[in-house]
């Protein structure tokens, strides 16, 4: 009976393979994410974590297998149609548009579903952005760019957030702020897939961890197993 009480699966990949040009990067990734869950993809550089997010969104050169978003099979859909099923994407390089102001970046994304945050809520979460409203994206600091990249997808009504390495290269105080933001988003019911290098950041936020290795899922670890399996995690992450 436990099955019935669990929230529905909103994002699933089965045997997901992906290529960049001739190079075969994903060799069959299987993940399942339930509504309201926060799940991480851990692993070494080059293991295929970023590519998994890109393959879900249709941004790799080629992909095969199954990807389901909110029940719709999207493997044959173009990226803009996949996004409109409820995905919000924060890329590793942050993807801030340098020739657009902070304000323009924040209001650029199309609304894909009802329930997007009003701008005021985003600015309440990341007050720094309000001060930089008229600055061009290219002139923002790394931390400000990261807040902008996360903030702008909250306005769209996307309920599944794909966040790629949001803490990379940022000062501890900003990492802390981002951690609080993730907790808040989780409490507001967002489903979050977090690609992280920083296991210490992720371990207290996530319900479940997938460890990606050589383009496959090497291990799946629930939050309450982390302490018991810490050695395995450290070995897989090469810490």
């Amino acid at each position: 009976m436990r099955e019935l009480r669990e929230p529905p699966i909103v994002l699933e990949t089965r045997g997901l393979q992906a290529w960049y040009g001739e190079s075969h990067v994903l060799h069959g990734v299987d993940i399942q994410v339930r509504q309201g869950e926060c799940v991480t993809l851990l692993g070494r550089n080059g293991a295929g974590r970023t590519t998994t997010l890109k393959a879900i969104l249709g941004l790799t050169d080629r992909r095969a297998g199954r990807v389901t978003v909110n029940g719709t099979d999207v493997i044959r859909l173009p990226p803009h149609k996949i996004a409109r099923l409820g995905l919000g994407y924060c890329p590793e390089e942050r993807g801030i548009y340098k020739t657009l102001t902070t304000q323009e970046n924040l209001t650029l994304l199309p609304v894909i579903a009802p329930g997007g945050w009003p701008l005021a809520d985003v600015l309440a979460m990341f007050p720094n952005l309000a001060e930089r409203a008229d600055s061009y994206g290219g002139s923002l600091s790394g931390g400000e760019q990261q807040m902008l990249a996360m903030g702008r997808i909250l306005t769209t009504g996307a309920r599944i957030l794909l966040l790629d390495e949001i803490t990379e290269g940022l000062a501890p105080v900003i990492v802390e702020a981002l951690g609080r933001a993730i907790s808040l988003l989780k409490s507001r019911g967002f489903t979050i897939v977090l690609v992280e290098q920083n296991f210490h950041f992720a371990r207290h936020l996530a319900d479940r961890h997938y460890v990606v290795e050589h383009g496959r899922i090497a291990a799946e670890i629930a939050a309450d197993e982390v302490d018991a399996r810490e050695d395995q995690v450290n070995r897989l992450l090469g810490v």
Partner: peptide
């Protein structure tokens, strides 16, 4: 600037 990302936003 970045058409691919714009498409990923819908």
């Amino acid at each position: 600037e970045n058409p691919k990302l714009l498409q990923a936003f819908g």
